[in-house]
């Protein structure tokens, strides 16, 4: 099963332009002022205010917006460049282009702002500026590798059995010269049985490489469960709606109940009421170290939408002879 978590746009674009015979050594332009929603002449204060508003709206730790993580990355990247006067000046010198357009910096740009050692092949504009200024120091400095975070979407059956997942990430990394690059990495991880919604796993050392003796980063996996047609999940417990015909609930019966480990028989006692939770111990999701959660069958009394004449007659008889009053508690003494 392939989980495509992120697409390396630059690598794809390079591949496309190579097909067309264009020079692939270029970058895609990003309009940082547009991303932040400010004029090119905005003051540092205005930029800071804009950042704070956007951070509040899109930061993945606090936001419920769709694509919050992606949008925040865009905003953070833009702010990173525009808040620093040197970086902002260098960025302004790149000129104005359409967002997404392939472009090359004007001649002499690399000499003025870089140290001339850049290759613009497969280079992301954000990576270029994040490495900006202090790169000379960065080359000899001990730097820990970056951590990567990814969400793995698995089915309930996979959580039950354990699953091997393949995750494809486009991650920023450094080559031997310390220059930033986007690389396509593939990770294979075995999610042990016992995972549930929101559980986190850590793959030590599977993140970005550390530099100059710095520790390698880690890969953090967040488990997300896909909705299941039958079961609902809470922690390691599972919940299943159990519809019963009225006579089944009154008289009691034995029913076949599906579980993740196969079908089982459940004895329904006579006089079972709607809303009752019948517990099937140990039939929930396994816990990571030992034990299992439970499966709860929530009783519903199902009523046929169309009853035949004979059925209606029999129900009528029943109504006539029964002394059952389900609404006795409605009549209150004043």
């Amino acid at each position: 099963m392939l989980l495509h978590e992120r697409v390396d746009r630059v690598a794809q674009a390079s591949a496309r332009s190579q097909e067309r015979g264009y020079n692939a050594a270029s970058m895609k332009f990003k309009d940082y002022y547009a991303v932040m929603g400010v004029e090119r002449s905005a003051s540092p204060e205005e930029i800071k205010t804009a950042y704070r508003k956007l951070a509040r709206k899109y930061h993945p730790d606090v936001s419920k917006e769709p694509n919050a993580e992606e949008k925040f990355k865009e905003v953070a990247e833009a702010y990173e460049t525009l808040k620093d006067p040197q970086k902002r000046a260098a960025y302004d010198q790149l000129g104005r282009h359409r967002p997404g357009q392939d472009f090359r910096p004007p001649p002499g740009w690399e000499k003025q702002f870089g140290d001339g050692a850049f290759s613009f092949e497969d280079l992301d504009l954000g990576d270029l500026f994040s490495a900006f200024g202090g790169r000379a120091h960065a080359r000899s400095m001990r730097m820990p590798g970056q951590d990567y975070e990814v969400t793995a979407h698995i089915s309930l059956e996979e959580a039950y059995r354990g699953a091997e997942v393949t995750l494809d990430l486009a991650v920023p990394d450094h080559d031997e010269r310390g220059l930033p690059h986007r690389v396509q990495r593939s990770f294979k991880a075995r999610i042990p049985r016992g995972a549930t919604e929101g559980q986190r796993l850590r793959l030590a050392g599977q993140g970005g490489k550390g530099m100059n003796g710095g520790r390698d980063g880690d890969l953090y996996l967040n488990v997300a469960l896909r909705p299941h047609p039958l079961f609902r999940v809470s922690g390691h417990d599972l919940f299943l709606d159990l519809p019963l015909a009225p006579w089944e609930a009154v008289l009691g019966t034995t029913v076949q109940v599906p579980t993740l480990g196969g079908s089982v028989q459940l004895k329904v006692p006579s006089g079972t009421r709607a809303g009752q939770q019948l517990r099937l111990a140990g039939r929930g999701l396994p816990k990571p170290h030992s034990g299992e959660g439970d499966l709860f069958a929530i009783v519903q009394i199902a009523v046929p939408s169309a009853a035949s004449e004979r059925e209606r007659a029999l129900y009528g008889e029943l109504a006539g002879i029964s002394t059952f009053n389900p609404r006795g508690h409605f009549a209150q003494e004043a």
């Binding site: 294979k188 075995r190 793959l203």
Partner: peptide, 24 residues
Amino acid sequence: MMTGQVEWLHEERELSLAELCELS
């Protein structure tokens, strides 16, 4: 392709103060 050794971030596994600082 790399195969990862997976570690649960579960309350049953304990981290020292130093470990928590380093990892966070």
